[in-house]
């Protein structure tokens, strides 16, 4: 197994600052914006974006977390059902601009499930997508509005986003199985 570090703590902080600026620019501020992180790492990224936006604009953007286990399309294909985590949706999402946040965009199936889950809470005026890493290999017609870094990968590689919230340090690794 080969592990190669692609981004360190400083890279990630700079990327998140840029993404926060892009979100504010595109939405002409933060009026009606709500940031929704997908469990688990997406929730951490969402909270960090909220912190960055507070530094830039001086406002607290609404934040929520979404567990998509109940909406997955691969329940019958997985060895075990995913561990169900708490969805916390403290706000009314009707007519809000939702920024959906995940750590890695891969096949797009998680995002599809997340949009289905959001629809059960209401009808946002718009859903935008922000991801820290886009690694390609989409299986659905989904693209991100805000991308931290494009990292072309092969299918045999894996991207691991480690964040201090549940790891020792912030970093992004590419891991290749096999040939040591």
């Amino acid at each position: 197994m080969i592990r190669r570090q692609l981004l360190d703590e400083h890279d990630i902080a700079r990327i998140l600052s840029r993404m926060a600026h892009e979100i504010i620019e595109r939405n002409h501020g933060c009026e009606g914006v709500c940031i929704v992180g997908i469990h688990r790492a997406g929730v951490y990224v969402a909270k960090r974006l909220v912190d960055k936006i507070r530094l830039i604009e001086g406002v607290d953007v609404a934040v929520a977390s979404l567990d998509i286990s109940f909406y997955r399309d691969d329940l019958n294909r997985r060895k075990s059902h995913p561990v169900v985590r708490k969805t916390e949706m403290p706000i009314d999402i009707n007519d809000k601009k939702i920024i959906l946040v995940d750590d890695v965009l891969f096949t797009g199936r998680t995002i599809r499930a997340a949009m289905d889950a959001l629809n059960d809470f209401g009808r946002p005026s718009e859903i935008q997508l922000a991801v820290l890493i886009d690694r390609g290999h989409r299986e659905l017609p989904i693209r991100a509005d805000y991308v931290g870094k494009n990292i072309p990968t092969s299918r045999s590689e894996n991207i691991k986003v480690m964040l201090k919230e549940d790891a020792d340090a912030d970093m992004v690794l590419v891991i290749r199985e096999g040939d040591d």
């Binding site: 567990d67 109940f70 997955r72 329940l75 708490k86 969805t87 809470f121």
Partner: peptide
């Protein structure tokens, strides 16, 4: 019991049904 706690949240929503 832990899984039930997430389903209890679903039951408090307007749309109380999931496609699972």
């Amino acid at each position: 019991l832990n899984t039930a706690s997430s389903f209890k949240d679903v039951l408090s929503r307007d749309i109380k049904k999931v496609p699972t």
